[in-house]
Amino acid sequence: MAVGDRPGTSRLPGLEGVWVFIGADAVVFALLFGSFMNDRRAAPEVFAVSHQALNVDLGGLDTLILLTSSWLVALAMRALARDELDRVPRFLLGGVLTGLLFVGSKSVEYTEKLSVGITPVSDGFFMWYFVLTGIHLLHVLAGTVLLGMLWTRARRRRYTSTDRATPECVASFWHLVDLLWIVLFPLLYLQR
């Protein structure tokens, strides 16, 4: 039973366990962000120069892609809550496709960096760039696979407004992925 499914209580989407996972994942990223900031403070010149090699336009596009994806997943959850079961797979498919689009965009960006000799061992900034965006990319890949599984099951009408805990768990994770990018984008691409 999802948190708050009892009458007269507020409701947290999904199951309690997913929120423990999301919280733990957020703490790990917070520690990584703090370590990045500490290293940036120790070598501001290196970080300032290296950050200029990033493609801000591509990072901005990635942000737009993930915001659109989260919006589509939110629309799928709203449609599911209203038992608009024909709409749920369409919105989930949009979430899958935008997840794949993000993976493609990040692949282009990695290829740009690697083709000019920028690697994780180039300097402290790029070590963090590849670590942070790489771990985030793994989250995007996992989330996209999970959204694809939801899409397949939603096409078969496996979920309804009274049986939506699994889709809500996946959607909550997907929103975490989006939130992490909203922190990563300014941290890496917009810093001065």
Score class of each variant (00 low, 15 high):
4 G>K: 03
12 L>P: 00
13 P>S: 02
20 V>Q: 01
21 F>L: 14
21 F>P: 00
21 F>I: 13
22 I>H: 00
23 G>Q: 01
24 A>G: 15
24 A>R: 07
26 A>S: 14
29 F>M: 13
30 A>K: 05
30 A>R: 05
32 L>E: 07
32 L>S: 07
33 F>G: 07
34 G>R: 04
36 F>L: 05
37 M>T: 12
40 R>F: 12
43 A>K: 01
44 P>G: 10
46 V>G: 06
47 F>H: 01
49 V>F: 10
50 S>R: 01
50 S>M: 03
53 A>T: 10
54 L>H: 12
55 N>T: 12
57 D>Q: 14
58 L>T: 11
61 L>F: 15
62 D>S: 15
63 T>N: 13
63 T>H: 11
64 L>Y: 04
64 L>T: 10
64 L>F: 14
67 L>Q: 00
67 L>I: 06
67 L>Y: 01
68 T>N: 09
68 T>V: 14
70 S>H: 01
71 W>Y: 15
72 L>M: 14
72 L>E: 05
73 V>T: 04
73 V>M: 06
74 A>H: 04
75 L>F: 07
76 A>E: 10
77 M>N: 03
77 M>Y: 00
81 A>M: 00
82 R>T: 01
83 D>I: 04
84 E>M: 05
85 L>S: 09
85 L>T: 14
85 L>A: 08
85 L>R: 14
86 D>T: 12
86 D>W: 03
88 V>P: 06
92 L>K: 08
93 L>E: 03
95 G>T: 13
97 L>D: 09
100 L>D: 06
101 L>C: 04
101 L>E: 05
101 L>Y: 01
102 F>K: 06
103 V>F: 11
104 G>A: 15
109 E>K: 01
110 Y>R: 01
113 K>D: 03
115 S>I: 08
116 V>N: 02
117 G>E: 06
120 P>V: 00
121 V>P: 00
124 G>N: 04
127 M>T: 09
128 W>T: 00
132 L>I: 08
133 T>S: 12
133 T>G: 07
136 H>K: 05
136 H>V: 09
136 H>E: 08
137 L>I: 08
138 L>V: 15
139 H>W: 10
140 V>H: 09
140 V>S: 10
142 A>Q: 03
144 T>F: 14
144 T>P: 09
145 V>R: 07
147 L>Q: 07
147 L>N: 07
147 L>T: 03
151 W>I: 04
151 W>D: 01
152 T>G: 06
154 A>G: 11
155 R>F: 08
156 R>M: 15
156 R>G: 09
157 R>V: 05
157 R>N: 08
158 R>M: 11
161 S>T: 02
163 D>L: 13
164 R>F: 07
164 R>M: 10
164 R>P: 05
165 A>Y: 03
166 T>A: 12
166 T>D: 02
169 C>T: 13
170 V>W: 03
171 A>K: 02
172 S>H: 02
173 F>Q: 02
174 W>Q: 08
177 V>C: 06
178 D>F: 15
180 L>H: 07
180 L>P: 02
181 W>V: 03
182 I>N: 02
185 F>D: 03
186 P>L: 11
187 L>C: 12
188 L>A: 10
189 Y>K: 04
189 Y>S: 05
191 Q>V: 11
191 Q>A: 15
192 R>Y: 02
